[in-house]
Design a protein around this nucleic acid. Structure first.
Lengths: 325, 325
DNA sequence: TAGTTGTGCGCAACCGGTTGCCAATACTTG
DNA sequence: CAAGTATTGGCAACCGGTTGCGCACAACTA
């Protein structure tokens, strides 16, 4: 049993009532300076720190938030968790974490568990139905990241601008036929990305081949490289960096030099700087989303708040003029 | 204010005392079946779930643990957090997380904060002094990961066996002069790795050149590639995958083909499968450490418990026979 | 029938804080 | 100098659980 000094110990040591100790910390101006210092000294001597659980119980607020992600192992999420944690500590708030392993049922139970311990939950890339999330959000403060459900405050990590820039960049280099390798069909991100590509290609009169990586993984990227070579595309935009990395590996394995024979653009800018050649990618500033979501949660943001982050193309070494045919 | 049913509500609904409700859940055999079902029905109707904070306050155990890491963004840590979380949920225990941004002072304050909310802390790759950690561990249950402090239960992610295998693998291929690119001088991992390499090289009569990546990063790996080429080594073992990846990029940039002109081996097997060519690396099974640490913590493991994980060389495509000189 | 034992359940204190309310003392003010 | 107003700080209830203890009643023994 850990023996921490309690408010009663401090009260005894300072010869005051427990309530006085409590209030010395919350409203010191209510007491004469002498009393305040007497209590503070006693507290310091005993190494007193208020018990957050007891405080939570009596005040009704836990000074903690929960963050629920599908998979901590996915490099997309840690930066979000990181900034969320940073922001939370600024507010002296603890962060509980839950990993749902990409399943809706685990997600639901994790949220239920966290709900009773926290003041609210940040739900990242939820795998549950709109209805389930809405029902939950009606009981517990929730902020969504990368899920666009009207009626729940949300921050969306957009790559629309970056995707558009990517297509324009390729068009500017002289490409006339490009490919887009899509990610998970139903995800908000994929919808947004493909729409942006479609729009830009239409506007700039580029031919577009759409391919599919069933899962947004390195392996599926490698697979798709073969199909890609069968098309007439001279450049490819991948759903994310991982897929792009797989495509580059697949192309390399088939003896197609990047970028000479195929320009490649990734998305999320997660591993882009560490590939060889360094990958042109779209920086979605996903990490900002963590901070924003925490702020929204703590401010009890309006149910219709909807923040969309910015994005930029980061040109590195995988995009060049198409080889003359 | 969230309106959850409390034990009092259930008691009223079931026409029993609050204590009865509490005990119906903890020791149902003490009551006649009729009473048990009456309470259970009432609880179900009201959607009652016990408040973990209240329970924590009255029992003195929070049913939560804390996990403190230097940097969630470092891909080494998420797998550990993931398995730790998995294990914790098996025990119906919540996980609080803190990111110390690689600084000892933040680490200290984070531990202090978590201590009052949890039943114990898993401290991963601590940046604090032995003395500071020991002092803290004397007040709060602590389990260390990747830090070897006698007197505190710890699990060490060892790559000794894998490193030895790596050297043997290179020797078997015919290499006679290899290089090791070291990581952070003071880290336990680096010590262990370099010692294993030294031992194996001595035993197998290989020449060894030791180089240094000041920080274990991609960039420092790139830098070191030039120095590496200046040596006579035909193969290089890097402190970790990130450095190896940087080395590969550096070599590629200087026109040295991997593996033909230089064999490369990484460590941690984190990104190894996604490089091109796929990187031969050492799998340290770091993720197991998360599970082990949680179990140690919850079992109040003996202060002298010291678990060392296994490791294996995973041969991929970056290691071949040395080119004839 | 009285005494013993056992079963089933409630009373009330406690965990460590917060907070509404009020009593005692000090300080103004007419 | 008495009455009114601040100032200071204590009492006690409450948050939502857990748990030691004991009472009431039924069943069993003698």
């Amino acid at each position: 049993m850990r023996s921490t000094a309690t408010i009663t110990d401090v009260a005894n040591a300072a010869k005051v009532a427990r309530s006085t100790v409590s209030r010395v910390f919350s409203q010191p101006s209510r007491f004469r300076p002498e009393t305040v210092t007497r209590v503070q000294v006693a507290a310091a001597n005993l190494g007193y720190a208020p018990n957050p659980l007891a405080k939570a119980l009596s005040t009704g607020t836990a000074a903690a938030i929960g963050i629920v992600v599908p998979d901590i192992g996915n490099p997309f999420f840690p930066p979000i968790i990181h900034t969320a944690g940073l922001c939370a500590t600024r507010f002296e708030i603890a962060v509980l974490i839950a990993d749902t392993e990409e399943t809706a049922s685990r997600e639901a139970s994790a949220m239920e568990k966290l709900a009773t311990r926290t003041d609210g939950i940040i739900l990242v890339s939820s795998r549950q139905s709109n209805a389930a999330v809405l029902q939950f959000a009606s009981r517990v403060p929730v902020v969504l990241i990368n899920r666009d459900i009207p009626g729940i405050p949300r921050v969306l990590i957009s790559t629309k601008v970056g995707m558009t820039q990517a297509v324009e960049h390729l068009a500017g280099l002289g490409h006339t036929h490009i490919a887009y390798v899509a990610g998970p069909r139903r995800s908000w991100s994929n919808q947004e990305r493909i729409n942006a590509v479609l729009e830009a290609c239409g506007r700039l009169h580029l031919d577009l081949t759409t391919l599919k990586a069933t899962n947004p993984t390195y392996e599926d990227g490698m697979q798709v490289a073969g199909v890609l070579l069968g098309s007439r595309a001279t450049a490819v935009i991948a759903f994310d960096d991982l897929v792009a990395q797989g495509i580059m590996a697949g192309l390399a394995a088939m003896g197609t030099p990047v970028p000479k024979d195929m320009s490649v653009i990734g998305c999320d800018n997660l591993v882009a700087s560490r590939t060889y050649p360094p990958l042109t990618s779209i920086d979605s500033r996903a990490s900002e989303a963590g901070t924003l979501a925490v702020e929204l949660l703590l401010q009890h943001a309006d149910k219709d708040t909807r923040i969309v982050t910015e994005s930029d193309l980061v040109v590195r070494s995988t995009t060049v003029k198409p080889r003359r045919t």
